[in-house]
């Protein structure tokens, strides 16, 4: 039998309305990483995308950049994050949720790419999203290291990505494919009719991987319209915005998630 990753298992069991929530590690407080993860998992979120803060996050809009700056001021780093994540799979509530790390190439390189993959896999992370790791470098240098450690790697596609390239990025990805709803930085307002046409096109391409839609998903309406033509969606900026004003993380995260999937 072919070995299936935790993320592949999640999509095997649930083909629709898969919810992935992004948050920045160490935000709003340094020690909030695990409580936020736990509340998300308990609220029924399928995948958690943990942002590793970077000083110059090119693909992100102001909300995520702001949370990254605050997390860095709080003292967050890759090293600190792995320390916080140590043993999280032993927590019953977090045993089965999919966990993906999202971050930029430079901090990962400084940590040491191979060491990063070793440590990520050993704390129980399932996959990686590194938006500025281009497919050429992935094929030449980094892909084999990622695979060796049993981690999934998720590429992004946008409405500007040619069909041929979508197939190529799909073939290189494992776990899922991240469909950016429009060519834009995170957190903007999107015109969802255009997005639907684009997602329909992706749906007809017969891709190997399930597709999650990100950028511009902020509420029940946008979540469900994204899910119409994809396996699920990713919420980032809207969650960070809401997180920044929460007084009680565990109850308010539950409310936030309920409003989306309820």
């Amino acid at each position: 039998m072919i070995h299936m990753s935790r993320i592949q298992n999640i999509f095997n069991q649930k083909k629709q309305n898969v919810l992935n929530v992004y948050f920045t590690a160490g935000y709003p407080q340094l020690t909030d990483t695990l409580p936020v993860m736990k509340s998300l998992a308990l609220s029924g979120v399928d995948l958690i995308e943990i942002g590793m803060p970077y000083s110059d996050p090119l693909a992100d809009g102001p909300v995520i950049q702001d949370s990254s700056s605050k997390a860095l001021l709080n003292g967050m780093s890759i090293q600190a994050l792995f320390k916080q994540l140590e043993g999280f799979r032993k927590d019953h509530d977090l045993a089965n949720v999919g966990v993906v790390l999202m971050g930029y190439m430079n901090p990962v390189l400084q940590y040491g790419f191979e060491k990063f993959c070793t440590d990520a896999a050993s704390v129980g992370v399932d996959g990686l999203i590194i938006p500025d790791l281009p497919e050429y470098e992935f094929e030449e240098v980094y892909g084999s290291i990622i695979k060796k450690h049993g981690l999934d790697f998720i590429f992004l596609v946008t409405p500007e990505t040619t069909e041929e390239r979508v197939h190529k990025l799909d073939a290189l990805s494992t776990g899922f494919l991240y469909a950016v709803s429009s060519s834009a930085t995170t957190g903007g307002d999107k015109d969802f009719t255009a997005v639907e046409t684009y997602l329909q096109k992706l749906q007809q391409m017969d891709l190997n991987n399930p597709v999650l839609v990100g950028f511009g998903i902020k509420d029940k309406t946008t979540f469900h319209s994204a899910c119409k033509h994809a396996n699920g969606a990713i919420i980032g900026s809207a969650f960070i915005q809401s997180l920044s004003s929460m007084n009680n993380i565990s109850t308010e995260i539950k409310d936030f998630v309920n409003k989306i999937i309820g």
Partner: peptide, 19 residues
């Protein structure tokens, strides 16, 4: 062809900039 001068250069860009 990939934009390298020795070990330096390349195009480390997110997919949104690729086209």
């Amino acid at each position: 062809e990939q934009g390298y001068y020795g070990q330096f250069g390349g195009a480390y860009i997110p997919e949104m900039l690729h086209a």
